[in-house]
């Protein structure tokens, strides 16, 4: 564990807490893409198949349970909670993400560290996470103004993988046999997808204005 990875995990945890706060405090999920939440639930379920087979540390196990539990809870809330579900932007959240899921799974069948059930699903989760934010970014552009908590949620979600890139550089420099090309390349693609959001987020922060993404 290094400071970059810890910062990344904490930033990721903060993004989940901000989203839970938004939904719980405002009893609304307007501006949040259910499709992105469902993709993230798939990412965690596919990535943490080793949850019960490989014990790495208490921290690792607890964080995996938190991410799986929170992503499923948010999907459940947005689908079935009788108050929250009413504020879901159903007609704006129309990204056909099964294309992404199919493409990522096909890529994982071709490109993986080892051809085993667990490894293929792990590579699938890495590729899927890289594009999981797309429905959310599309929804933000369509829904125009973005409320603060939603903007902060997306910001922290994008920032966490940027910390992981620093972690991979650090591990590459300090650990002799460290190579994680699948994670690194996907992580770069993932962070790059946030580039324009980060730009408009910074502009809105500098001008102390509402976050506006161009349509």
């Amino acid at each position: 564990m290094n400071i970059f990875r810890l910062a990344g995990d904490m930033t990721h945890l903060i993004s989940v807490l901000v989203l839970l706060l938004k939904i719980y405090a405002t009893k609304s999920c307007s501006g949040i893409s259910l499709k992105t939440q469902e993709l993230y639930a798939m990412v965690f379920l596919a990535r943490y198949l080793d949850l019960f087979s490989d014990f790495i540390s208490l921290y690792n196990t607890v964080m995996k349970l938190v991410f799986i539990g929170s992503s499923l809870a948010i999907v459940w809330c947005m689908r079935y909670h009788r108050v929250v579900r009413r504020s879901y932007d159903r007609e704006l959240d129309t990204f056909r993400y099964w294309i992404l899921v199919g493409a990522c799974f096909t890529l994982a069948l071709v490109l993986h560290e080892k051809f085993s059930f667990q490894e293929v699903f792990w590579a699938f989760s890495i590729y899927l996470e890289a594009v999981a934010i797309l429905p959310q970014l599309v929804l933000l552009q369509r829904s125009g103004n973005v409320d603060n908590l939603t903007g902060q949620y997306v910001f922290f979600l994008g920032a966490y993988r940027a910390f992981y890139i620093l972690n991979w550089i650090y591990r590459y420099l300090t650990e002799p046999r460290f190579t994680r090309w699948i994670s690194c390349v996907s992580g770069l693609v993932q962070t790059a997808l946030y580039a324009d959001f980060f730009y408009y987020y910074f502009i809105s922060w500098k001008n102390n204005a509402k976050l506006q993404l161009p349509a």
């Binding site: 080793d50 690792n60 972690n167």
Partner: peptide, 10 residues
């Protein structure tokens, strides 16, 4: 600590 299939990250 490297894991059998090397995934010690979240």
């Amino acid at each position: 600590r490297e894991q059998p299939h090397g995934h010690d990250e979240l």
